[in-house]
C-alpha cells in the first residue's frame, strides 16, 4: 500500500451554513409577505440619514422595520427609532459584516406578519458584506458624492453583488466637484445594466423615486408568490 496522500473530492461551499440559513430566512419572509432590502456602503456615506428619510416616507403607506449593524454603539438605532417604531440594533463587536445568523437572532421575537418591508443596514464596509447572503430580496449599494466617483472601480465586488446603486448626498455634489458622468460610467463598468438613483436625504431629492421602487417591488413580489402558490 502506498503512503502517498489520496485526494478526496469535496466541492463544498465554505459559507454553506450561512447560505442555508439565508435561504430559510428568505422563505420565512416570503411566507409572511415581507420584502427585505439591505443597504451596504462605506462608513459615512449617509446610510443612516438616508434610512431615516426613507423610513418616514415609506412608513406612511407600509409597515416598516429596520435592523442596523454596527461594531459598537446603538446610536444608529436610536436615530432610526424616531422614524419607525420597530428598530433593532445588531452590535457585531469586532465582526466587520452582518451574517444570516445575526439576522435570525435579531428577529427572533418579531411577528413578521405585522410587517410589509424590512430594511437591513449593514456595517459600513465595502469589502466583507459582499460574501454574505442575509436572506434579502434586494441589495442597495450607496455611494456618496463626497467619496469620489472611482469607488466602484476600487470595490468592484460589492457593486457587482448589489442590485441597485444609490448616489447619496446629491445636495453636496457641486461643493465636492462630483463628476456625475464618471460615477455613472464606473458603476456601469463594474455592474453593466445596474439601476442607479440619485438622492439627497437632506433636500428630499429622489427619495420619492426610491419609495416608489420599493412599493412596486413589494407588490410584484407578493403577486409572484401568490401565482406560485396557486400553481403548486
Amino acid at each position: 500500500m502506498s503512503d502517498s496522500p489520496r485526494l478526496i473530492e469535496v466541492r463544498a461551499k465554505v459559507l454553506k451554513q450561512n447560505d442555508l440559513l439565508a435561504r430559510s430566512l428568505r422563505e420565512r419572509f416570503h411566507a409572511a409577505g415581507v420584502y427585505v432590502v439591505s443597504f451596504v456602503s462605506s462608513p459615512g456615506s449617509g446610510k443612516t440619514r438616508f434610512l431615516e428619510g426613507l423610513l418616514t416616507l415609506v412608513g406612511r403607506q407600509h409597515r416598516v422595520a429596520a435592523l442596523v449593524g454596527d461594531l459598537a454603539t446603538e446610536n444608529d438605532a436610536m436615530r432610526l427609532k424616531r422614524a419607525a417604531s420597530r428598530v433593532q440594533q445588531i452590535t457585531t463587536g469586532t465582526i466587520c459584516h452582518l451574517d444570516a445568523s445575526m439576522i435570525e437572532t435579531a428577529i427572533q421575537s418579531w411577528d413578521l406578519a405585522e410587517l410589509d418591508l424590512l430594511f437591513i443596514e449593514n456595517v459600513g464596509n465595502l469589502v466583507c458584506p459582499s460574501s454574505y447572503d442575509l436572506g434579502e430580496d434586494l441589495r442597495f449599494v450607496l455611494l456618496s458624492t463626497t467619496e469620489g466617483e472611482d469607488k466602484p472601480l476600487k470595490y468592484p465586488t460589492i457593486f457587482n453583488t448589489a442590485d441597485v446603486a444609490l448616489l447619496t448626498k446629491m445636495d453636496m455634489a457641486e461643493a465636492a466637484d462630483f463628476d456625475r458622468d464618471a460615477a455613472h460610467r464606473n458603476i456601469q463598468s463594474v455592474r453593466p445594466g445596474m439601476s442607479v438613483l440619485e438622492v439627497s436625504a437632506k433636500t428630499g431629492e429622489g427619495m420619492e423615486a426610491v419609495a416608489t421602487l420599493l412599493g412596486d417591488r413589494l407588490a410584484a413580489s407578493r403577486n409572484s408568490l401568490t401565482v406560485q402558490a396557486a400553481q403548486s
Binding site: M1, S2, D3, S4, P5, R6, L7, I8, E9, V10, R11, A12, K13, V14, L15, S131
Partner: peptide
C-alpha cells in the same frame, strides 16, 4: 466561488 474543492488525506 468560495468552496473547498478537495482534501489531500493520508492514505
Amino acid at each position: 466561488e468560495l468552496e473547498v474543492a478537495s482534501l489531500e488525506v493520508a492514505a
